[in-house]
Amino acid sequence: MGAELLTIPECPHAAAAQQLFERALRLAGISGMVHLVVDSEEEAASLGFHGSPTFQIDGQDLFPALGDPALSCRIYPAPDGPRSLPDLESLRTAIQEKLKGR
């Protein structure tokens, strides 16, 4: 199983996203993740990258997005309005759902 965090160069949320993902993975009993920096439109298209940060398990986005892949910031829905990162519980739930589907 591979856990990947994908960000764009100089993403202002990369460090916080990495800490959040590592915590959520640890709570799910998973150790280790890879942090990839996506720096071209071609790479974004080949990875199905829909903005930074993107959280993936086995190459599949934990929060599937519609639209074309792009080198841009990403917004996650939250009860109190859009945010640049998902909350811990949403990320944990997405990880668990992905693990069930394996």
Rank of each mutant, 00 (worst) to 15 (best):
L85T: 07
M33Y: 06
E22K: 15
D39R: 10
P79W: 05
P69V: 00
G101W: 09
R83M: 05
A65V: 04
L6P: 01
A65D: 09
R74W: 03
L5I: 02
S72Y: 02
G81R: 00
M33F: 03
A78V: 04
E42P: 10
G48T: 00
G32R: 03
D87L: 12
A70S: 13
L88M: 11
L85C: 12
A17V: 05
D80Y: 08
H50I: 03
A94E: 07
P9V: 06
L20N: 07
H35I: 00
A45L: 11
E89L: 13
V37E: 13
R83D: 02
A78I: 02
L25P: 13
A45I: 08
L71R: 03
I95Q: 06
C73Q: 04
E10V: 10
G81A: 00
H13W: 14
F55C: 00
V37R: 11
M1T: 14
D39P: 04
A17C: 11
R26V: 06
L27A: 15
T93G: 12
D58G: 07
D87G: 13
G29L: 02
S72L: 05
V37K: 07
L66S: 15
R74Y: 04
E4K: 15
S84V: 06
L88T: 09
D58Q: 14
L25Q: 06
A94I: 05
C73E: 09
L71Q: 06
R26N: 12
P69F: 02
Y76T: 02
L66P: 07
P12Q: 00
S84C: 10
A44H: 01
P64S: 08
L71H: 07
A45P: 11
D68F: 11
H35V: 02
L5T: 05
L25A: 10
G67W: 06
S46K: 15
L6R: 13
H35Y: 07
V38R: 05
E89A: 14
L88E: 15
P12T: 01
Q56C: 13
F21Q: 06
A14E: 12
S90H: 12
E41V: 12
A17S: 12
I8L: 11
L88V: 07
K100M: 08
I75R: 14
G101A: 15
A28T: 05
S72F: 08
L62Y: 10
L88Q: 12
S40V: 11
P53S: 00
Q18T: 06
F55K: 02
P69E: 09
L85R: 02
T54Q: 14
G51W: 01
F55Y: 01
D61R: 14
L99I: 02
G2H: 13
T54F: 00
I95P: 08
E42D: 11
R26A: 15
L36T: 15
S84N: 10
V34G: 07
E97A: 07
P77K: 03
L47D: 03
D58W: 02
L88K: 07
R23S: 14
Q18W: 01
P77H: 01
D80V: 05
F63R: 08
P86F: 05
H35E: 07
V38K: 06
P53I: 04
R102K: 08
A3W: 03
I75F: 09
P69N: 04
Y76K: 01
I57H: 00
D68S: 15
P53M: 01
R102N: 11
C11E: 08
A78W: 09
R23M: 13
P86Q: 05
A3E: 02
R23W: 09
R102C: 06
L99R: 11
